[in-house]
Amino acid sequence: MNNIRELSKDESSGMTIIVKTISRLVLSFILLFGFYIILYGHITPGGGFAGGVILSISYVLLMLAFGSKVALAKLSNFWASMLDNLGALAFIVIGFLGLTGGYFMTNFIWHGHPGQLISAGIIPLCNIAIAIKVSAALYAIFIGLSIYGRIVTEEEK
């Protein structure tokens, strides 16, 4: 797809130019905030789930404002479900790696100092895995529901 600035002038798909312009400005900040929530999940409120929801919201916003074609060109249905599976797999693999520390899900990495960014062992890694899983899954659910809904309403017409 082309530059997002050009897309916002294209009136054939998506919402009005006002919505498109605002979303274009806000999108990157939402994405950034999502990453912040994920990476600081182990020392501040938040974490993988909350951050993942925020990440998926940025894609949902893209889809609502610019239409499904633009959003699907950025992250297709296939890759959404692939990332969904890979995130879940990463979490399970982290759990099994914990067996090296003696138990399933053991926190086997160096714990670091409390309150610093690099600390808490596997918890940030788990947060990242969960975030990938949740963001991709929510986006895939949104794609699924919106496409199904459209098929149903088009059949009625």
């Binding site: 789930f49 529901l145 199904y148 149903v152």
Partner: peptide
């Protein structure tokens, strides 16, 4: 509660999908 919210989200998504399919 966080866990329970996540579970609720899964159930809700499934219910919404089923509602659409039922309507279809």
């Amino acid at each position: 509660v966080l866990t329970s919210i996540v579970i609720g989200l899964g159930t809700l998504a499934l219910m919404a999908a089923q509602a659409i399919k039922l309507y279809e």
